[in-house]
Simulated scan of single mutants.
Amino acid sequence: MRTRIGLIRHGSTLWNKEGRVQGHTDNPLDEEGLRQAAVLAERLSKETWDYIYSSDMLRARQTAEVIAARLGLTLAGLIPGIREMNGGLIEGTTEDERIARFGSGWKTMDMQLESRELAQERGVKAIEELAGRHPGSNVLVVSHGAILRSTLMGLIPALDVSIMLKNTSVTCILKEHGGWTCELYNAAEHLQE
């Protein structure tokens, strides 16, 4: 049985444009983010999707609600396990602000960031639980860039996730025969149309 999970990064926010670390700060989409969600929803309407879930953070939920409305789906649930990684002491800051506050060596200091290992563990657990809940289905999950890349590294260790996920990009993974493969990574052609 084949289960397909479409992983979506939320639409853009003001903090994305300003280069601020968002982490657990509950920012809304900006106007462009709402437009991106609508364009993505149109693209997804040409495919078959059975369920849509979202991180419990506002920017992801707003993106999911736009998509759900276009697809005629009800938001199936909010999943704290796929919320963005905690930004610790750098949350809300730009690179210039981090350098001003902590010095140019800030990346070598303990900024109380959530570890990639912990994020990966909770992300993998959340996606595995969803796949178990909806075997053989096509499930959309709206989440965040860093947690999605960490989760993908846990599910498909050989996958190259070095390219940052674009806002409203789609990454499709398939679970078959107990293992995961990636069918599509960081697809955002809809934004050019």
Rank of each mutant, 00 (worst) to 15 (best):
M1Q: 13
M1T: 11
R4N: 04
I5Q: 01
G6T: 11
G6W: 07
R9A: 06
H10D: 10
G11V: 08
T13Q: 03
W15K: 00
N16Y: 03
K17V: 13
G19Y: 05
V21Y: 15
P28G: 07
L29I: 12
E31K: 10
E31I: 09
R35S: 06
Q36M: 08
Q36R: 10
A38K: 11
V39F: 06
V39S: 12
L40C: 06
E42L: 12
R43F: 11
L44P: 04
L44V: 05
K46G: 10
K46M: 13
K46T: 14
E47A: 09
W49K: 02
D50N: 15
I52P: 03
Y53A: 05
S54I: 01
S55I: 08
L58M: 15
A60H: 07
R61V: 15
Q62V: 04
I67A: 02
A68H: 01
A69Q: 13
L71S: 02
L73W: 08
T74A: 11
L75H: 02
I79S: 09
G81F: 02
R83K: 15
R83P: 01
M85I: 15
G87T: 10
G87C: 12
T94I: 00
E95D: 14
E95N: 11
D96L: 11
D96C: 00
R98T: 08
I99K: 15
F102K: 11
M109H: 06
M109R: 15
D110C: 05
E114F: 06
E117W: 03
A119D: 02
A119I: 03
Q120G: 15
E121Q: 15
K125S: 14
E129I: 07
G132I: 14
R133P: 02
H134C: 08
P135K: 10
G136D: 07
N138L: 06
V141Q: 04
V142M: 04
H144F: 07
G145M: 02
A146S: 14
M153I: 08
I156W: 00
P157I: 00
L159D: 09
L159P: 06
I163Q: 14
K166D: 11
S169E: 00
T171A: 06
C172W: 04
C172N: 09
I173T: 01
I173E: 08
I173L: 07
K175H: 13
G179L: 12
W180E: 01
W180P: 00
Y185L: 11
N186Y: 01
E189P: 00
H190T: 03
L191D: 02
Q192Y: 12
Q192E: 14
E193M: 13
